[in-house]
Design a binder for these strands. Sequence first.
DNA 1: TTGTGTTTTACGACCTCC
DNA 2: GGAGGTCGTAAAACACAA
Length: 282
Amino acid sequence: MDSGRHLIFDSSSSSSGARLLVLGGGNHILRGVRSVVVGQERSATKRPFFTSPDEIYDEEYYEEQLPEKKRRLTPEQIHLLERSFEEENKLEPERKSELARKLGLQPRQVAVWFQNRRARWKNKQLEQDFDSLKSSYDALLVDHDALLKDNDRLRSEVNSLIEKLQGKEQGTSGVTGLKSDDQVASSADLIAPNIRQKVEDMLSTGSGGSAVIETEGTNQLAESSRESYLPEGYNCAGLVGGGIQTEEDDLSDEACNYYPDGLFMEQHNQEEAQLGGWWFWN
DNA sequence: TTGTGTTTTACGACCTCC
DNA sequence: GGAGGTCGTAAAACACAA
């Protein structure tokens, strides 16, 4: 049992007596004799300190001391401590002494219990905060994904409308087959200037439909589509990336009537800019 | 029974406040 | 400088599956 037992004789003075440090083996030998003495069971006969290295090997001493191990508090003690903790999680000296007296514990034990209880409480709070933040994040992620999809859908719709307009004005020689977002920029440059101007007019006013595309047979489509795919609360969203733009490219106050209250727009990085992607956050 | 993971008790080191 | 706080950790106590 004692094989491999290593002890450190701690000669540094301490306020409370024996300090025996155990580095290995001897599982029954506790690292601090002080720590195993619990409450009123603390024995007055305990050796206060080793006065010489030889005393470390005094087996008789251990036989007397070893039965006392670290003990858990009784349910009654814990109940009272918990109630006290609920009232106030900090411990003033008077309350500490009072509790110790009521519970038959050392004031030090009461203090340690409160320290550990505060640590547990803090951990629990951290877990709750984490869960709460994670829920918020997940909800935002869902919103964000929905907005991205909406964004894509709107872009395709604009592309399709542009194609139709071009078809009307230029017959079959116009640009066709726009499929992806990153094609919007280059294709927009190829749009006949007069059509482009009309689309810009339509999208830039933000006045709720004052712009009318005069091209025969298309104005109604353009107007109704635009109204249908803008979510409630949105006025007008401009395209970016060199495509159709608002009159105010700099998102100045005057131009920012395209966004609903409580939203701001942010172009996150170059990649998203390439995709013509505006991120909406609320 | 035993191995393993979790909880509880206790401590030392370090920090802050008065 | 002392008292009391947090933080990190050791080790006993405990729970539980294999």
